[in-house]
Computed example of a mutant assay.
Amino acid sequence: MTGLVWLALDGLGYPGDAPDGSVWEAALPTLRPLIEAGRALDATLGVPGLPQSGTGQACWLTGLDAVRAMGEPGKGEHFGPHPGPTLQRLLRAEALPARLAQAGARLALANHYPPAYFAAQVGGQTGGQTGGQSGRTGAQRPRLGCFPFSFLAAGLPLNPPGVPPVPATLGLGYADPWPEQTPLTEVTRLGTALALAARTHDLIVCDLWFGDHLGHRGRTPTPPPVLRAGRAYLERVDALLTGLLDAGARVVLSSDHGNLEDLRVKAHTLARVPFAGVGLALGTPRTVVEGGQAIAAAFGLKLDLGSDAKK
């Protein structure tokens, strides 16, 4: 059986919770039907405030309530965008990459990280077991997101060999007005290449964070270039997904919180988030925590609810 490709979207709420005229009104012949056939999950977990990437992604990666691991005991706190010491401990102990690596699985984070990304980590913690510090003085928040942190903590490299590198923008320019730099056909070919790589892996993850980057450019009235870029980005997710599915890949798609679906504001939203897939049982999850548990279950992993990491 081919391995699973996880498209981990950042900052994309469920289309049913989006306002009229949203990015979801782009032409998405593969993505939209898959999303609508899947589940819409709660990302708030009953905790006040706007869901954040740090705790949201930690929920997906561990299948545990990372929100209630933060803040005052019993109350919880949405935290992000990067994992601090509390979430780092949770990810080292319980994140899917660490658990699969310990079981001897072959997995990879497909994102392409340019030299500037590694330079930006100077002064922050790495994802390694020692959480190594640079020679700089003074505490600094680590800049690694939950996905690269978890892979590094599991002893796995960034920019791994044998996996086609996936650019964060999926071929759009990084800065306003976010012009097309790579045609959609090339993004579809990238999906095909990922599907081929999945035949020799158990799990390949794509940390698709650019949607959240665009979502934070929202305001009222919504700038037309931002809306165009948001729709163009989802069209590229659609093209990537098309290449994957046409090549027979098993795919799961998730999101950590809402943002891009409502460009009338630049903040995160309380929208439900999508959970969809092909080639795995989604079950009947209601929250992002249960969604993370469903992904772990696809690999035969079960949670040890008595572990100290959950307390």
Rank of each mutant, 00 (worst) to 15 (best):
M1K: 12
G11Q: 08
P19L: 09
P29L: 02
L31G: 02
A43N: 04
L50T: 10
L50G: 02
T55L: 11
W60I: 14
G76W: 00
G76Q: 06
G80W: 02
P83Q: 02
R89C: 01
L100S: 10
A103F: 01
P114E: 08
A119V: 12
Q121V: 08
Q125C: 11
G131I: 01
G131E: 12
T137C: 07
L144P: 00
F149V: 08
F151Y: 15
L152E: 15
G155V: 05
N159I: 03
G162Y: 06
G162S: 04
G171N: 01
G171W: 00
G173Y: 06
A175S: 15
E180R: 11
V187L: 05
R189G: 05
A195Q: 00
G211Q: 05
G211S: 13
D212G: 01
P223E: 09
P224F: 06
L227D: 05
L240D: 09
L240P: 07
A249H: 07
R250E: 08
L253V: 12
L270V: 11
R272W: 04
P274F: 03
V278I: 14
A281I: 11
P285M: 01
R286C: 10
V289T: 03
G291N: 04
Q293S: 08
A296P: 07
F299L: 12
L301K: 06
L301Y: 02
